[in-house]
């Protein structure tokens, strides 16, 4: 990705999506609990979070499918609530489950959508065939979608979303359940769309996917954005890396834990392997001293590694922090 990083203060006209204080309640539960969002035009924005974090709810609100309980949002300058029609004509949505008619063929589905969008019969047919070719589905054109493989279903689904190339495309977990090859095909489609100026907002549970595609990532948990930035920024925010250490003698692990904790000034995790320890390190310089200290105490280290944190680690660390701080606020309240 050779796009330059975004600045924090961006020109308002440059924003595809601008939302503030979005809230959605389902009964007592606040599924989305005050989300602010700024998405620049022509970029990919990733929502990363576990099941039930509020990703889908947020996307459904922005795609005009769910009423927002409070907050406001502008989609390409159009107010989400006041100018619903205008918003709908600029966006397209590919939901988590196949949003095409599985009883119909791929060709019929695309013609159907094209006709609904106001294409003439001839145009609709032409467009449908072009899309099927571009998405590698020409051979399945006359097959019912229910007989498609998972990857083909996903592609016809996205094809249906770009019958008229939208300015904003919402993709809800576009690659969940796909094999690596199909996943790459979907990624290629997303990249091609972005290259031509479409803004893509996608949700994913896969850190790898967010890392690969998204210019900026928002980590969502329990209806709130708990971190936001480029994948590099997110990784940097939790320290310079993770240290893994393995000992020769598992009996010495408690002692090693104490030494590392003192030296690195951070909490040390004991892994399920009885000889292994790991820690997030904010300052890589200290690692050498810490390992030296282990050697001086006659604790033999069989191997160690220090790597950039994966987004997995970023995510787990961030959600843990969130739980901690929530526990504290609850204590204060009671």
């Amino acid at each position: 990705m050779n796009r330059t990083n975004t600045k924090n203060d961006v020109d308002r006209d440059d924003l595809a999506i601008e939302a503030s204080g979005l809230v959605k309640k389902f009964g007592e539960k606040r599924a989305v609990d005050g989300i602010d969002l700024k998405v620049r035009r022509g970029t990919v924005y990733g929502f990363l979070g576990p099941n039930g974090a509020g990703k889908t709810t947020t996307i459904r609100m922005l795609a005009t499918l769910l009423k927002i309980d409070s907050g406001s949002a502008k989609i390409l300058g159009h107010d989400l609530v006041q100018e619903t029609e205008a918003v709908r004509s600029r966006i397209s949505l590919t939901g988590q489950f196949a949003s095409v008619d599985e009883d119909l063929t791929g060709l019929e589905n695309l013609i159907f959508i094209a006709r609904l969008l106001g294409c003439s019969r001839r145009q609709a047919k032409e467009r449908a065939n072009d899309l099927l070719n571009a998405f590698g589905l020409e051979e399945a054109a006359k097959t019912q979608v229910k007989k498609y493989s998972g990857g083909m279903k996903r592609r016809i689904d996205i094809a249906a979303s770009i019958v008229i190339t939208p300015d904003i495309l919402f993709l809800d977990e576009p690659t969940t359940g796909l094999d690596p090859r199909s996943r790459n095909q979907v990624w290629d489609i997303v990249r091609a769309l972005v290259k031509h100026g479409t803004t893509v907002l996608l949700t994913t549970q896969y850190l790898d996917e967010a890392d690969q595609l998204a210019d900026r990532i928002a980590v969502i948990d329990k209806g709130k954005i708990i971190a936001e930035g480029t994948s590099g920024q997110l990784k940097a925010s939790i320290g310079s890396g993770r240290l893994h250490v393995r000992l020769l003698n598992p009996d010495l692990r408690p002692q090693a834990q104490q030494i590392l904790a003192d030296e690195l000034n951070t909490s040390i995790q004991l892994l399920s392997d009885p000889t292994a320890l790991s820690a997030l390190v904010s300052n890589a310089d200290r690692v050498a001293y810490a390992l030296g200290e282990l050697a001086r105490s006659n604790i033999t280290v069989t191997d160690f590694s220090l790597g950039q944190p994966s987004l997995d680690e970023v995510f787990l660390t961030l959600t843990e922090r969130q739980t901690d701080s929530e526990g504290k606020t609850q204590e204060v309240q009671s």
């Binding site: 094209a114 294409c119 070719n133 571009a134 008229i164 190339t165 489609i189 769309l193």
Partner: peptide, 22 residues
């Protein structure tokens, strides 16, 4: 398929809003 993909994305499809009957 990259080329056809690019093309299909850039193609402008002339269309007008379909009315309720259509």
């Amino acid at each position: 398929t990259d080329d056809s993909l690019d093309q299909v994305i850039t193609n402008y499809i002339p269309h007008s809003r379909a009315n309720g009957i259509k």
